[in-house]
Design a protein around this nucleic acid. Structure first.
Lengths: 229, 229
DNA sequence: CATCAGAAACTGCAATAGCAGATAGCATAT
DNA sequence: ATATGCTATCTGCTATTGCAGTTTCTGATG
């Protein structure tokens, strides 16, 4: 019997993370970056074999992916990779618009002076990256900025949801940053505007600006086009 | 394949639930209605024994709850029930405000005439329940109304998120409906207003009214008080 | 009495084996 | 040629067993 046609290599025994966690991340990223195409049949057993582990952790990873909608399993028949393309990215994008808006609003309510100082530092740290046009580092800095605001919101469920979303549209955002050369600077200015609203303790404006920012960046990368059919 | 002219519909795969699924629901509801207090230590083995099944399905259920933040497990030390009280309900409520708003906006864009007819029927079906003051049936009808709008939005991730949320604040909503006698009628009027915005194909107003509705009902039941400390 | 090894009893995690439903292939019968 | 029945082999699902840390109890020792 041949191994499963997934190009997944066995897991390295280096990390302290559980095998299930590692299998989950591996599969999640493979789906997110498109290397696991939709419709691909996944067998717990053969996948376990190609990862060099037993079927249990694999199964756990699959159930987790199923809960997130990235995989659908027909009882006693098989598990398939769900569709994950422009349409799904757009759907996730709309959720991010709503949730990050709430996050900004809450951050404007709860942020301390120290928090705002940290956000300013994050913003300032992006400037040299802008000059150098280091896309990968910029994407990380962006995610750090947004993630920090998420933390200030003080809503554990909100933060959890956004973390999960970010894992999936990470690759799409990278592509978007590369495709439109003026996007990084524009995003930076919008970040600064959001931060000034937070600093002013204006939840309404913080939310409005955040929503506009996320939505505009989605439009700039053409992601929302997938919904205007 | 033979055409089989009988009007039989395919069997639903949901009829037989896996042990893991059943264990998950049991635990989830126990946490949601407070019968599993925060800090309670849960052992995979002993819980499995008291449920009459093996440890595997229980473990799956626990990992799922962990992904939802309702349980926290310290590797090789134990699993405990996370805090789930007014504060958490309020946090979930704010997420619902944002997501249901998006849902209403999308529904206003995508709803067909038939969809609107169905929503009107759902609304009309609530009227006798209002007169009879049948709280349990009203809560179900409310969830059906909101759930139907979620479906119209055509965003699978949005729908999934809201379904998960609803499972947790279901009990709180029941309590809220009971505590304020004028709430059911007020909710009904707001539902009607939302529907009219959807009918008018006005996404902005549908979203605004939905957000106001969810937020106000949260305030009426005192749930949001937990955040104004 | 206090302290501290060390065994015993937990814990979550992982591997293995086996069950039952579902499918595909093939032989047989009509 | 088509339909039927059987079998081998897939699938996900569950049970059992054992592993490796962690905690807790215990009892000998100071």
């Amino acid at each position: 019997m041949l191994t499963a046609p997934t190009g997944l290599t066995p897991l390295a025994a280096e990390d302290i993370l559980s095998l299930a966690e590692r299998a989950y991340r591996r599969l999640r990223d493979a789906i997110a970056d498109g290397s696991l195409p939709a419709g691909e049949r996944i067998s717990e057993r053969s996948l376990a074999q190609s990862l060099g582990i037993s079927a249990q952790p694999v199964r756990e990873a699959l159930r987790r992916l199923e809960a997130e909608g990235m995989v659908v399993t027909l009882p006693r028949r098989g598990t398939l990779v769900a569709e994950f393309g422009p349409r799904q990215l757009a759907e996730m994008g709309l959720i991010r618009v709503a949730l990050e808006g709430t996050t900004a609003s809450l951050a404007a309510r709860h942020a301390t002076a120290g928090d705002i100082t940290e956000l300013l530092a994050l913003l300032r740290a992006m400037r040299p990256l802008l000059r150098a046009n280091d896309i990968v580092a910029l994407a990380e800095a962006n995610e750090r900025f947004h993630g920090h605001i998420d933390g200030l919101a003080g809503n554990a469920f909100l933060q959890r949801s956004l973390d999960a979303l970010r894992a999936y549209d990470h690759f799409a955002r990278l592509r978007a940053l590369r495709s439109t050369p003026q996007e990084p600077r524009r995003a930076w200015r919008e970040h600064a505007a959001i931060l000034s609203a937070i600093r002013r303790r204006d939840p309404g404006q913080a939310e409005a600006r955040m929503r506009a920012h996320v939505r505009r960046s989605l439009e700039a990368s053409g992601i929302l086009d997938a919904l205007n059919t």
